[in-house]
Design a protein around this nucleic acid. Structure first.
Lengths: 162, 162
DNA sequence: CGATGTACGACCGAAATGGTCTTGCTTCCC
DNA sequence: GGGAAGCAAGACCATTTCGGTCGTACATCG
């Protein structure tokens, strides 16, 4: 249940990586017009993921305004904004699309089963809770050792085993 | 993203329905050994969902100990416990299986990509938050008009449009 | 015994997912 | 200017998952 796709996984990993690069570049005082830009291939190699697939993911991220791309030799991708201002929610939505927790809630909020689906209201709230949870977590939060996560993440630690 | 399957949807709807039936039966003082038992076909008709599919879902729930079944004429399914003690999490897990938010976290907690997946730790916490969120919502919460949901559901209402 | 209903496994088509290939266009550097 | 490095984008494909159906077997009540 509640699985996010491998693409989203990859996307988050790549963003985290780029965030670290940007951080390093900044600390080194580098005067690159694109601080910490890295090619899709580099990132793919770092994490052992299919380069072509990652490329496609990065492209969609760039289209969504989360990354900026730079073609040509020594080109690559870099964060379009500071890592702290990019939420995981935004990323996931850009990659996986605006899907909802319940199949019954469409884009227009209408239920296929007009009247007889009384379950959707409470579930919509669950949905909202999750979105706000994800919205509260930025790429920067992923990049740094996470001991103190945003308040949104408070909550029991239910252990899940089969 | 974060979609739960139609089966889980159906399962929750059916449980809600059964919870209401049990409630009615109790109020009427009925002395049924199985209070509010309903056949799969009845429920399916009430919500316009494929009867055979629902039957299979109910069987799964019965195997999970959430429902009790009674074969034969006038048989059917009823809640095995009070609706307030059945969490949505439990239901979803029974139907969809113990899947995790990130594909990288397996049952054994091991990551395919041994070392180089540094994203999983924070995501695991998100995962835990969601589980505890769902654990805090019972079937009874779904059945009654939901104005005051459990505290776990506090959180911003982020509106999501395409 | 027969009607009603659960139990369960095999099966199937459609859609989503994960991934590859090809082709084209930009930019840098020699 | 001409490569080489790199992004852009779309067609394409294999595999899995999902939603749903069918058939058969078994239980129970009247």
């Amino acid at each position: 249940m509640l699985r996010l796709t491998k693409k989203a996984d990859y996307g988050l990993m790549a963003l985290k990586y780029l965030a670290e690069q940007a951080d390093l570049a900044e600390k080194a005082g580098a005067d690159l017009h694109l601080t910490g830009a890295r090619s899709a291939k580099d990132i793919a190699e770092a994490y052992h993921i299919p380069p072509q697939l990652l490329a496609k993911i990065l492209q969609t991220l760039a289209r969504a305004g989360i990354l900026v791309s730079h073609a040509g030799t020594n080109g690559g991708y870099a964060l379009a904004r500071p890592a702290a201002t990019i939420s995981t929610f935004e990323v996931i939505r850009a990659i996986d699309g605006p899907l909802f927790i319940t199949s019954c809630i469409t884009i227009h909020g209408a239920c296929d089963l007009a009247g007889h689906c009384t379950i959707k209201e409470p579930l919509r709230k669950v949905n909202d809770s999750i979105t706000s949870l994800l919205s509260g977590i930025s790429i920067a939060d992923l990049a740094e050792p996470v001991d103190h996560l945003p308040a949104a993440m408070a909550g029991g630690l239910v252990s899940i085993e089969r």
